[in-house]
């Protein structure tokens, strides 16, 4: 039986040779002291404050760009000295221009997967069913030139899923994902996991990370400030417990601040966010009681289901305060 490597990416103290230079200031490494371990069949979402930082991180991972210091091992095989060279075990998606515009989606995927040993009829059935299953059935017969760049990227991801590469690097942090495509990528990740492949995607879309990824890593000012599971990230950093929606949120805030001294109250977009100050688990029942005590009857009270977006904002805020 073929050995499937467990460790897909191992980065130890990796620093980029690229530096940011602002005016007369001292140059700052775009990436510095990056330590990251990505295992087989994990889905990673890499997020950060700078698009260039996260793009460069994935380029280094995919052997597209060299790094200055540290160690990076891909699929337990080391790293090629020669950069940008095509590696059979790494499928890098850094743009959406790989598709042929004179084909439709299904035709292109059949063309791309033509070298697989699966019978043509079965292959087309499998691809077609996959496109429908991920919610892009409406695109299956659309000519490629009519697709948006984001849709093209997802089609490229489908092709990559049919390749023999163990690691797919989806490095398009600038792309804007709508709900349909987020859903499609999220469903694609299940297919990718089934095939024991690893997907690493760069994005600033927290919803995409929440829906599609098992793990996430966050960079800020060239440093990795978080790496771990998405669930842990959400629970650790999203401290919002309850969201109250009402016309009189400002006066509610004043009153509840006195009643809930262990919580932080903040008005955002017409909603009152009640967040815990400590990392201890809080009791939603107590908060509810206090709201009732305050004499207000809000239009709605919602227990926050912990989002990556809130966790990300909190993490960045904490780091801003530290600086």
């Amino acid at each position: 039986m073929e050995h499937v490597p467990e460790q897909i990416v191992v980065m130890e103290g990796v620093a980029s040779s690229e530096h940011f230079l602002v005016g007369g200031e001292k140059p700052r490494r775009v990436l510095d002291d990056i330590n990251l371990l990505i295992r087989s069949a994990e889905i990673w979402g890499i997020n950060g404050t700078s698009l260039f930082e996260i793009k460069l991180l994935l380029e280094i991972m995919a052997n597209i760009r060299p790094y200055d210091k540290g160690k990076c091992v891909l699929i337990e095989r080391g790293m090629m000295r020669l950069k940008r060279v095509i590696l059979k075990h790494v499928f890098y998606i850094g743009g959406s221009e790989m598709l042929y515009n004179n084909m439709n989606v299904l035709e292109f995927l059949m063309f791309a997967a033509a070298k697989s040993k699966i019978n043509r009829v079965e292959l087309q059935e499998e691809i077609f069913e996959l496109i429908i299953a991920i919610g892009l059935g409406h695109l299956s017969l659309t000519p490629n030139y009519m697709l948006t760049k984001e849709e093209k990227a997802v089609i490229t991801l489908i092709a990559a899923a049919f390749s023999d590469s163990l690691m797919i690097v989806f490095n398009l942090p600038k792309y804007v994902w709508d709900e349909v495509l987020i859903d499609a990528i999220s469903k694609m990740t299940s297919f990718i996991k089934e095939k024991r492949k690893t997907l690493i995607l760069a994005t600033q879309n927290c919803l995409l990370i929440e829906k599609a990824c098992s793990h996430t890593a966050i960079t800020k000012n060239g440093l990795l400030i978080y790496s771990g599971t998405v669930e842990n990230f959400r629970l650790s950093f999203d401290k919002v417990e309850v969201i109250i929606r009402d016309k009189a949120v400002e006066s509610m805030k004043e009153k509840l601040t006195l009643l809930l001294p262990g919580y932080e109250l903040d008005v955002k977009g017409g909603s009152l966010m009640i967040s815990r100050k400590t990392s201890e688990v809080s009791d939603h029942g107590i908060i509810y009681k206090k709201i009732i005590e305050s004499g207000f009857t809000p239009d709605s009270i919602e227990i926050n289901s912990k989002t990556v977006q809130n966790a990300y904002e909190e993490l960045i805020r904490q780091h801003d305060l530290q600086e």
Binding site: E18, H19, F20, L21, F52, K55, E59, R65, R84, G94
Partner: peptide, 19 residues
């Protein structure tokens, strides 16, 4: 792999140097 230009995602007012 042919690497497209990254200039669009480099922050404004920042130069990128290789040291």
């Amino acid at each position: 792999y042919n690497l497209p230009s990254d200039s669009a995602i480099i922050p404004a007012g920042v130069n990128l140097v290789e040291i």
